[in-house]
């Protein structure tokens, strides 16, 4: 009986997949041409260079066309970090030190991570500053910076982050994002709509508000992930 039911369900799924797909000719181009876009994707591809002068179309979609969605994503990250912090929070008893790593790491790792750490930070900053020109952006750059901080945490026992500074960075970045959105309203356009000069394509200073927002997102993501890692590492051992 159960097997019959499974077979029936599989048949239904197969039919409902086959029916809509059968109308499309195999290998047909449904995007339409750049000059005459028929779908949303082709529209973005055709309009992004002229409307925003942004080379990375994905960035243009994420930060400009769907900027409100990105604001939501950033706040989801913030909520996740806050939730983790509040779950793992424990009041420190007197005379108790946070023991993040039980034994010190080797001298080789310490010396090497000192060499690599600045390079990782520079790479992360590069990725989010050039978010509108090359693949990558605020989220990726922030994650790269957080991995650099994780490396330092693993190799140095007493490497700790100042949570007050992290909170400040996070809040300021979030405020920047929202302020730019509201500034669009004040200028007389819609929320998070571009109101700055767009410059020329493939310049570092181009794309209007996109680089500013992505730099803010980069700082925010880096601070949040670093805070999460610090909270996770500083769970006390009994």
């Amino acid at each position: 009986m159960r097997k019959l039911l499974v077979l029936f369900l599989l048949a239904v799924i197969a039919f409902s997949l086959y029916k809509p797909l059968s109308t499309i000719e195999f290998g047909a181009d449904r995007m339409g041409s750049i000059e005459n876009p028929t779908t949303v994707g082709a529209y973005y591809l055709s309009k992004t260079p002229s409307e925003l002068s942004v080379a990375n179309v994905i960035t243009a979609i994420v930060v400009n066309y769907r900027g409100f969605d990105t604001l939501g994503e950033v706040s989801v990250l913030f909520l996740a970090a806050t939730g983790l912090g509040s779950i793992l929070y424990r009041r420190r008893k007197e005379g108790e030190h946070s023991i993040s790593i039980s034994k010190p790491s080797s001298q080789l790792l310490q010396a090497g991570s000192k060499l690599i750490y600045p390079a990782i930070l520079v790479l992360g900053a590069y990725v989010f500053i050039h978010g509108h020109l090359t693949p990558g952006g605020g989220f990726q750059g922030g994650a790269i910076i957080a991995t650099g901080i994780l490396l330092m945490m693993m190799s140095y026992k007493d490497f700790h982050l100042n949570h007050t500074v992290l909170t400040w960075i996070e809040s300021l970045a979030g405020i920047t994002f929202a302020t730019i959105g509201i500034a669009g309203l004040i200028v007389g356009k819609t929320f998070l709509e571009n109101f700055m000069p767009i410059g020329t394509l493939n310049d570092l200073f181009s794309g209007g508000i996109i680089p500013i927002i992505y730099i803010a997102v980069g700082f925010k993501v880096a601070a949040e992930l670093a805070g999460v890692l610090d909270t996770l590492l500083s769970i006390k051992e009994k």
Binding site: S106, L109, G112, S113, L115, I116
Partner: peptide, 20 residues
């Protein structure tokens, strides 16, 4: 240059972690 620094370092850390 980055690979020359990072690759032996990571394998050293992995080996040390495995021994520990």
């Amino acid at each position: 240059i980055f690979i020359a620094i990072a690759n032996p370092l990571s394998s050293h850390a992995l080996g040390r972690g495995a021994y520990r």
